[in-house]
């Protein structure tokens, strides 16, 4: 009974949240200055009043805001995100073209940040006053404090210009290779953007896991594990890490939203063909349907990520499992 009720409640909450996101974003965009028709007309090189009025009518911009909102919401409800003013193609299709690149970038960066950050954090927690620990603290604070676009540009300068071992931009070469080599090429292009995006988060994960592990390693149950005769590696990586990871998992969930914001900047610096760059370009073009679609899609992604975090949280912490079950 309770097992069935829980996902249903979660689903209802998610739908409500998505609806709120749609309405709020729609109204917010109405507040922004600029008008899509005048942008299009400007790019066309001007048009008569008559043509402009015709275009407004065609896009439904002559209706009242409330009417427009109702139309939009009812369309979104059946999975129709509308038509891009600029690209002249369905928004959903545009998003789906760009989504994989962003997800690839975001997940690679996140994985890199979590794995590297946690590893470094745990190592420095074992000797909190050692050299490695101070080194980690300084380097991670620099990574955290430096703006992403600056880090990106510096990496480009170092590894694409001075020592050109990585490509400067894009996701594949002009003449993309076929088969397995295609994936190698994408991976090659992925290195710098992913490292750049990860640089912000490595700091938080290494600091967090360091603090968390120092705390965990001073707990009574760690002494119990040692009293049992377990070798030190097992004490730290089995009894310690399982507990030390709990705040890390929380942080992953909280950072998903920020990750997409960071991805927008990185995609712009590295010309990565993802959702973030599409969003950036669409804002400049006043392409409302595309902006709204992207915002909705990222909101849904964040919700899915939070649900997954919740699930992961239960896996690592049995106390939560039984409390909510």
């Amino acid at each position: 009974m309770t097992n069935l009720k829980q996902p249903l409640v979660f689903l209802a909450q998610s739908v409500g949240l998505a609806l709120a996101v749609v309405v709020l974003n729609f109204l917010l965009i109405q507040l922004a200055p600029g008008d899509p028709v005048s942008v299009i007309v400007g790019e066309m090189g001007g048009a008569s009043e008559e043509v402009i009025a015709q275009m407004r009518a065609a896009y439904g911009l002559d209706k009242s805001v409330l009417e427009q909102l109702l139309i939009y919401v009812s369309k979104v409800a059946v999975g129709d995100l509308g038509y891009s003013y600029y690209h002249n193609s369905p928004v959903l299709q545009l998003i789906m073209q760009r989504l994989p690149a962003t997800v690839l970038l975001a997940l690679s960066a996140l994985t890199l940040a979590v794995v590297l950050g946690t590893l470094v954090g745990v190592l420095s927690a074992r000797k909190p006053h050692g050299l490695l620990s101070s080194f980690v603290t300084v380097v991670s604070l620099i990574g955290y404090a430096a703006p992403v676009f600056w880090t990106g540009l510096m990496l480009l300068l170092l590894f694409s210009a001075i020592w050109p071992i990585f490509p400067t931009s894009g996701m594949v070469q002009m003449r993309a290779p076929k088969g397995f080599m295609y994936y190698v090429d994408v991976a090659h292009h992925l290195v710098l953007p992913a490292v750049t995006l990860a640089s912000i988060y490595i700091a938080s994960y290494s600091r967090l896991s360091r603090t968390s592990m120092i705390d965990v390693l001073s707990q009574d149950y760690i002494r119990t594990a040692r009293a049992k005769g377990l070798p030190e590696g097992k004490v730290v990586y089995k009894h310690g890490l399982r507990n030390g990871l709990i705040p890390v998992v929380t942080m992953v969930g909280l950072q998903f939203g920020q990750l997409f914001a960071g991805a927008t900047l990185v995609e712009t610096v590295f010309n990565w063909p993802g959702l973030g760059r599409l969003a950036f370009e669409s804002i400049l073009r006043r392409d409302y349907p595309t902006i709204l679609g992207i915002l909705l899609m990222t909101s849904i992604l964040v919700m899915v990520a939070n649900a997954l975090t919740d699930l992961a949280y239960r896996l690592v912490d049995p106390r939560i499992r039984s409390k909510r079950a």
Binding site: Q219, T224, A225, A227, K228, G229, H239, N243, D317
Partner: peptide
């Protein structure tokens, strides 16, 4: 843990919660 072992004062915190 095999030839000699120990029981600690605080049963609430001496067991690993996970």
């Amino acid at each position: 843990g095999s030839v000699m072992s120990m029981v600690f004062q605080e049963p609430m915190t001496s067991l690993n919660p996970v």
